[in-house]
Simulated assay, not measured.
Amino acid sequence: MDDSLPLDQNTLWNGAAGENWVAQQTLLDGLFQPMADALRDELPVTVTELLDVGCGTGASTLSAAAARADAHCTGVDISAPMLGLARQRAAAIGRGIDFIVADAQRHPFATAHYDWIQSRFGVMFFEDTQAAFANLHRAARTGAGLRCIAWRSAQENPFMTTAERALADQLVLPARVPGEPGQFAFADGERVRRLLQRAGWQDVDIAPLDLTCFLSRDALASYVGQLGPVGLALRALPAARAEALLQQALTAFAPFIDGDRVRVETACWMIRARA
């Protein structure tokens, strides 16, 4: 069995990026709570076996488990550090949730096992998206529901690229290539629809989901300085240089400041399909 992703993704999420998400779990859970709520609201009362793809530190899995106490929940993610925290969180509330360190594109899930598959920002990083959705379709029972939340385009989510744009002439950052694995890989909704249909999913519906999220103003420096491509780049610099660039980037977030909070208008897709 080979559950590995290409080296760059596997190394990233089992190294600095995964460790940063663990360290910033409280901040990120608060910021993306509206997405966890949106997924929870989609849950049918009849769900018995739920799979949460790219579950990270477990927020969306725990939300589903709390909403459907009789359902057995499983989370899958490539990041061992993030799943380590997810297991701790599940144990702390006494829930028997399974967490699998694996690439959902390749992992041999039991055939026709799950009656609900969900993901909050976990499906945009596959090496081969169609193959991943085909593997998930194989794991789904006939009639099973699929619900995924993914980002739309970078242009529709200016907050997410503010730091990159502010420091574009100061840092060498990885290029964002349309359609390639990454945060905005699902920007083209029609392309995603075709991939799902080719993978065997039916009744595919891809609808805009616009949500307002909030971040504590005091937490903005941690968000910018620790997370994403800018955070990774800053952590590799001498401390004084990193701090100077961080302060430069923070000034660019002025349009998003709302009192003691940072207001983030997000543009996502709610992806619905049936096996």
Rank of each mutant, 00 (worst) to 15 (best):
D77I: 02
D77Y: 02
I78Y: 01
S79V: 00
S79H: 01
S79N: 01
A80V: 00
A80I: 00
P81F: 00
M82D: 00
G84Y: 00
A86Y: 01
Q88S: 08
R89D: 07
A90K: 09
A90S: 14
I93L: 05
G96K: 15
I97H: 03
D98W: 03
F99R: 00
I100V: 14
I100L: 08
I100E: 03
A102S: 06
A102W: 00
D103F: 00
D103L: 00
D103H: 01
D103M: 00
A104T: 10
Q105L: 08
H107R: 05
F109E: 06
F109M: 03
F109R: 04
A110I: 14
A110P: 09
T111G: 05
T111K: 14
A112L: 06
A112D: 07
A112N: 08
H113Y: 15
H113F: 14
H113N: 05
Y114I: 10
Y114D: 03
D115R: 04
D115A: 03
D115N: 06
W116M: 15
W116Q: 14
R120T: 11
R120Q: 15
R120W: 13
R120I: 09
R120S: 13
F121K: 08
F121M: 14
G122P: 03
F126T: 10
E127G: 08
E127I: 05
E127V: 04
D128I: 09
D128C: 11
T129N: 14
Q130R: 08
Q130G: 09
Q130N: 07
Q130F: 13
A131G: 13
A132H: 09
A132K: 12
A132G: 11
F133R: 04
F133A: 04
N135P: 12
N135V: 01
N135F: 04
L136S: 13
H137I: 02
A139F: 03
A140H: 13
A140D: 11
R141D: 14
R141W: 00
G143F: 06
G143I: 10
A144D: 07
G145P: 07
R147K: 12
R147L: 05
R147D: 04
C148E: 05
A150K: 09
A150G: 06
W151D: 01
R152V: 04
R152E: 04
A154T: 15
A154Y: 13
Q155G: 11
F159R: 05
F159L: 09
M160C: 13
T161Q: 12
T162P: 01
E164S: 10
R165S: 10
R165K: 14
R165I: 12
A166S: 09
A166C: 07
A166Q: 05
L167C: 02
L167E: 01
Q170P: 07
Q170C: 06
L171F: 05
A175W: 03
A175G: 10
A175K: 15
A175I: 15
A175D: 14
R176C: 11
R176S: 14
V177Y: 07
V177K: 12
P178E: 13
P178F: 12
G179Y: 11
G179E: 10
E180H: 11
